[in-house]
Design a protein around this nucleic acid. Structure first.
Lengths: 193, 193
DNA sequence: TCTGATAGTTACAGACCGGTAACACCCTAG
DNA sequence: CTAGGGTGTTACCGGTCTGTAACTATCAGA
């Protein structure tokens, strides 16, 4: 291989990064561990030395994916320091960009659809990570001085989640193109109350 | 078996009904054709005499699922003949009931998440069925005398879709419990314009 | 130079997958 | 009664899946 990355990055990190990407694109049940290790330039034994099972790998991928999403929020704070309302609007536009750029939805939501067993170890992790996302949006709405911050945050959350699904069912030219208009309308409507 | 149903209903219909139920509960990739035929009280050969492949069975299940959903709309018309606004409110409450009663989401949306291949034969069917759903809601909003009927219908659609996903990620006690409040707020907001 | 941890290779186990072949059975229409 | 279509049964094909065993190669640090 000698592609640089393979040499410098440790196998565990390469596996995690590759698995994240492949799970996102092809779904969890659509990718086998063999395919992951091959794409990561390593082998199955090394994967099982670092992750005790595919389920454990899935969980670590979900955590990594959520961490990447959380990192975006720091950009909002950096771009609009202290201005929570501006950060909320930045969130809306960032979300719209994601809808246009990525034809697949949220990794956690997709995983919840695929892993139907009620006691699958990933389910509690998904719930935990999704709750954290919600809490952050609620806090942003509240700090932006909006009454009924929880209701607005939940509405925006569901709208976002629905848009990401809609991209998968009806394509990126469907209803999701109206996301900014919908979200901005909601925000101004809540601010007027 | 001699469970009555097995005797009276034709194998093809039993397979279709059983497959729908199992795909809905366990996901498409989570159910094999053997499991379907066994649960339907028949066998694999009979399945392949009626459906040329698993993919074809999936498509027929999606069509059947959408047809069941469409049948609900006729109830609205029967309960509130001519009163389109009342029918829209009936839709909102029916949707809320579904959110509370069923922990799994929309069959078409779930299928879109699972079947990631861009040229999978089910994808075009999903798009077609989802577009028909959207068109029906748009027409209802327009006939209810609402300006910007398309925008309201799309907003309600995404909200609904998001709520069905939210039930799977955060449970039926999460943000989806606020669906009626959100939807009613949107409708009255659009009517006020 | 020796040691020990990390990583790669090959082969395999056991299960499950979608799909097919060949054949026996039953039930109904004629 | 008989013919034939729909159905059930068994066995099988080739492939893929997660996970493991046994062995080898590499390389850094003492």
């Amino acid at each position: 291989m000698a592609d640089g990355i393979t040499d410098r990055v440790r196998p565990r990190d390469r596996i995690l990064e590759t698995a994240q990407d492949m799970f996102h694109k092809h779904g969890i049940k659509g990718v086998g561990v063999d395919a992951i290790t091959e794409a990561a330039g390593t082998n199955k034994m090394t994967l099982y030395r670092h992750f005790e099972s595919k389920d454990e790998l899935i969980i670590q991928c979900l955590r990594a994916s959520a961490a990447k999403g959380a990192a975006i929020w720091d950009e909002f704070e950096a771009e609009h320091p202290g201005d929570k309302l501006a950060q909320l609007h930045a969130w809306v536009h960032k979300v719209a960009d994601m809808l246009a750029a990525d034809g697949r939805g949220c990794d956690m939501a997709n995983a919840a659809v695929e892993l139907t067993e009620p006691n699958h170890p990933a389910r509690s992790v998904i719930k935990e990570l999704k709750s954290a996302q919600r809490d952050r949006l609620v806090a942003l709405c509240r700090d932006a001085g909006i009454g009924q911050a929880e209701l607005l945050a939940d509405t925006l959350s569901l709208l976002f989640e629905g848009a990401r699904v809609s991209v998968q069912t009806m394509g990126c030219q469907g209803p999701s193109t109206q996301f900014v208009r919908m979200a901005e309308g909601l925000i101004s409507s809540f601010r007027a109350r």
